[in-house]
């Protein structure tokens, strides 16, 4: 079935099925961390997660119908936001901790060993606290993640050719489906109409914070790379370069 004819319930169940499996860092962490060892663990994990993120995106109904150019742009724009939202979701029941993976958990204070990362950890922890206060549900989380992906590029490119315009229209219809799905997920929580509207507002407003932290994180990673603290390679390098070379 095409996403435009799917019920919100069906759409959500498809994006729930698309969720990537739990991922492990699978490294012997030598504590205390050094700046280099922590950055290496963070980037190794990110690189593994990125591969799974591409498979995830391809399973979102309608994503593969967009032009390949749009698919590439969307992923290049939003990858760190998606990683960060996933991190927040894993950490939501662990106040003061960042659960990067089941075998890689950090306390806020451990951020001290990497120059400039504590500020980012604090922003990640603050956004995670907001999700905790809101008691974010899994259905809402998967919708927000799809929204980040599909919304990431909307205001940075304007379609020129007929093909680009067609893909842009598909993208907008797909965003409609995701918004409908989120509204449906919220409507299942037994709230008053007004409370539902407020919840929708609060959840979507959090996305602007995630974009902000992602921008900070991107700057931080590119600084770490430039200073040769960490070797960024492979897919992560490609994704980072897309945000910094311009």
């Amino acid at each position: 079935t095409h996403h435009s004819t799917m019920s919100p319930e069906e759409f959500i169940s498809r994006i729930m099925e698309a969720e990537p499996p739990e991922i492990y860092l699978m490294e012997d962490l030598k504590k205390p961390f050094t700046e280099a060892s922590m950055m290496m663990s963070l980037t190794n994990l990110a690189d593994k997660e990125l591969v799974l993120m591409i498979s995830w995106a391809k399973k979102i109904p309608g994503f593969l119908e967009l032009s390949l150019t749009d698919q590439i742009h969307l992923l290049k724009c939003c990858w760190l936001e998606i990683l960060m939202l996933g991190l927040m979701w894993r950490s939501v029941d662990h106040p003061g901790k960042l659960i990067f993976s089941p075998d890689f958990k950090l306390n806020r204070e451990e951020g001290q060993c990497v120059e400039g990362i504590m500020e980012i950890f604090d922003m990640l922890l603050a956004a995670t606290s907001r999700f905790r206060e809101l008691k974010l549900q899994r259905e809402e989380y998967v919708c927000l993640k799809a929204m980040i992906l599909l919304n990431s590029n909307l205001c940075t490119s304007s379609p020129q050719t007929a093909e680009e315009l067609e893909s842009r229209n598909k993208l907008l219809r797909l965003l409609d489906s995701v918004i409908d799905a989120l509204v449906w997920a919220i409507s299942k929580l037994g709230l008053s109409t007004q409370q539902q509207t407020l919840r929708l507002g609060h959840l979507t407003m959090l996305l602007s914070h995630i974009r902000h932290v992602s921008n900070k994180g991107m700057d931080h990673l590119s600084t770490m790379k430039r200073k040769n603290v960490v070797l960024v390679y492979d897919l992560l390098l490609e994704m980072l370069d897309a945000n910094t070379s311009s």
Binding site: V51, I54, S55, L68, Q71, I72, L75, K76, L235, E238
Partner: peptide, 13 residues
Amino acid sequence: HTKLLQLLTTKPE
């Protein structure tokens, strides 16, 4: 071919 392009265009398992 970039890795991203390669991952996007390979058929799902």
